[in-house]
C-alpha cells in the first residue's frame, strides 16, 4: 500500500490513488499480486492510466505478476478520500469535496446550494460558474471576494 502512495492521479498529480480512496484490496493469487480498485466515474479516461501506473510501480518494486481487478459495488465516493488528499487538493488550488457525498435520494433541482469555500482566500462567498470543469470530477466556481476562478472537486 505504501508503494501505491507514489502513484499519482494522472489528471491531478498532487493526489495519489491511495488519497483518492480507489484501492479496495491488495492480495495474492499464487505469485500474482491482485490489486482491486473501484473506478471513480464510469467514463473516466484516467482509469486506464491508473491501472497501468499501479502495475508498473509494483513491478519497479520487484513484483513481477500484477493483476488489476475492478469492483463496482459499493460505488466509489469522495467520502473515501483521505484527509491528506483533502489537504493536497486545497494546497493545489482545488476546493476539496464537501463532507457528504452527493445525495441520490432526491432529484430536486438547484443542487448548488452547498457552500464551497474558496481554496485561495477562504471566503464562503463563491458562485458556481459551470456544472462541469476540465474533468468529470470537477465543477468550476468563482470567488466573489478575491475574484479568482477555481475548480471544485465535486462531492460524489
Amino acid at each position: 500500500m505504501q508503494w501505491l502512495t507514489g502513484v499519482p492521479d494522472p489528471e491531478i498529480p498532487v493526489l495519489s490513488v491511495v488519497d483518492l480512496g480507489l484501492i479496495r484490496r491488495i492480495g495474492w493469487d499464487g505469485s500474482t499480486c491482485v490489486v482491486t480498485i473501484t473506478p471513480t466515474y464510469s467514463g473516466c479516461p484516467a482509469m486506464h492510466e491508473i491501472s497501468a501506473d499501479i502495475t508498473s510501480t509494483l513491478q519497479a518494486h520487484g513484483i513481477e505478476d500484477v493483476r488489476i481487478e475492478t469492483q463496482l459495488s459499493p460505488a466509489w465516493t469522495t467520502d473515501w478520500m483521505t484527509p491528506e488528499g483533502h489537504a493536497a487538493l486545497k494546497g493545489y488550488g482545488i476546493a476539496p469535496p464537501g463532507e457528504k457525498a452527493i445525495n441520490i435520494s432526491g432529484i430536486t433541482r438547484r443542487a448548488t446550494d452547498v457552500v464551497v469555500p474558496c481554496p485561495l482566500c477562504g471566503s464562503n462567498h463563491t458562485r458556481l460558474v459551470s456544472h462541469f470543469g476540465s474533468t468529470s470530477c470537477k465543477a468550476l466556481y468563482r470567488c466573489n471576494d478575491c475574484r479568482e476562478p477555481f475548480d471544485y472537486f465535486k462531492a460524489h
Binding site: I107, R109, H131, K154
Partner: peptide
Amino acid sequence: EKSIKEVTYHVRRSSD
C-alpha cells in the same frame, strides 16, 4: 449503483 450517482447530477443539471 455506480451510474445513479452520475445520473443524479445529470438530472439536476438538465432540470436547472
